[in-house]
């Protein structure tokens, strides 16, 4: 059962990575990169590292996305000014 979960999640993660590279919209790319971090924490849990899984779940899903959004907002605001 566990190998099936790993293969399923791995295919989704690779698809999300390729989508994050090729999306036209930056916001969509950031959300795709967030999906990779979210699913990576399940992989860490299966590999027997709950500490790493907890770190990845809190940083990958929350703070990285938010920091990207803050930077994107500052950049977009400048664009609308001129």
């Amino acid at each position: 059962m566990i190998p099936v979960i790993i293969i399923g999640l791995g295919v989704i993660m690779l698809a999300a990575a390729i989508a994050a590279v090729y999306f036209k919209s930056l916001l969509a790319s950031i959300i795709s990169a967030g999906v990779i971090s979210l699913l990576a924490s399940v992989i860490y849990l299966i590999l027997g590292s709950p500490d790493v899984a907890m770190t990845e779940a809190s940083i990958g899903s929350g703070l990285t996305t938010v920091i990207f959004l803050f930077a994107l907002h500052r950049v977009r605001k400048g664009k609308s000014d001129d």
């Binding site: 190998p3 790993i6 293969i7 791995g10 993660m13 690779l14 990575a17 390729i18 994050a20 590279v21 930056l26 790319s29 950031i30 990169a33 990779i36 992989i43 299966i46 590999l47 990207f68 930077a71 994107l72 950049v75």
Partner: peptide, 28 residues
């Protein structure tokens, strides 16, 4: 399996850093 997954993600990330023109895409 997870080793292959990690290497594939690493290569996709390097490819994105090398080919994308947008700076934020590079950071992604």
């Amino acid at each position: 399996y997870t080793l292959i997954l990690g290497i594939a993600l690493l290569i996709i990330g390097f490819y994105a850093m090398l080919t994308r023109k947008n700076l934020i895409k590079m950071v992604i």
